[in-house]
Design a protein around this nucleic acid. Structure first.
Lengths: 142, 142
DNA sequence: GTCCATGCAAATAGTTTGCACCCGG
DNA sequence: CCGGGTGCAAACTATTTGCATGGAC
């Protein structure tokens, strides 16, 4: 679990550590995610990056995020059929997903213990386990 | 866990039990899913239903599947950012997801035991827990 | 000058919307 | 007839593709 604060300065090093060429667009996109430490969609990231001036395009945001996922700098979180969220935390953890607000919250994997994990089908290996706890605000009586 | 075999005949009753008006299109779509007992995407279902003659449209397949989910006749499985899968099994279970082939396999919930479930944030209730075990075929040496 | 990495406009694919139609009362 | 439920064409939106550009050697 990584608690360091992220600045534009150390962002370039972080990219290089993951074998990613630190271009202007990539730095902006990485900074948007890491400085906030939130779960953001591609659209939200585009909006943040282009707040002041137009710095990049939709396509570049998508391609860059895919690159980051491939290089294991960030993780995809697939909980909503309509959009993917990107998570700057790559340590092992799971998620609460508020189905009403669409908000995601981390759950440290250490909190969970899973036993009786069924055997894998032969000839396959595990890539990872995703656990989504879907929650909703308690209904308020009328 | 429901092992009965599904025919077009008992399909109409099944729909009525879930307060769904059994129209021709709905019967075909339900039959496609239940007779196969597989995880299918909307596109695959459209292809199956229209195999012989054109029986329905894309939009109707989507609307019908959403109706079925709402009426709790089937479940959505959200594992792939590019498409939703629909699951005729509504008993409590989880999934293996082969990230290479895109194939889904059921895991009976009884096999799993989760302990140390973290407390919910206050004022919310659980909707459900989805567990996805992402797997891939073991790399074959060259 | 050549070549590959990069960024983005345009194309694509999955899904939803809004409206025309038809069937039951 | 009239009205709501039904089905679908067209619209919409998230994401990918293919290509033009430009920097590195």
């Amino acid at each position: 679990m990584d608690m360091k604060t992220y600045t534009r300065d150390n962002m370039a090093d972080l990219l290089r550590q993951h074998a990613i060429n630190p271009t202007h667009q990539r730095l902006e996109i990485a900074y948007a995610l890491f400085s906030r430490q939130e779960h953001l969609s591609a659209d939200q990231i585009l909006a943040i990056v282009n707040t002041k001036h137009s710095e990049t395009s939709k396509a570049t945001v998508y391609n860059t995020l895919n690159l980051f996922v491939e290089k294991k700098l960030i993780r995809e979180v697939i909980v909503d059929p309509s959009k993917v969220f990107y998570d700057p935390n790559t340590y092992e953890h799971h998620h609460f997903y508020d189905v009403v607000s669409g908000h995601l919250t981390d759950i440290d994997a250490a909190d969970f213990k899973i036993s009786g994990l069924p055997m894998l089908p032969p000839g396959v290996i595990t890539e990872g386990i995703d656990i989504i706890v879907r929650i909703r605000p308690q209904a308020v009586p009328a």
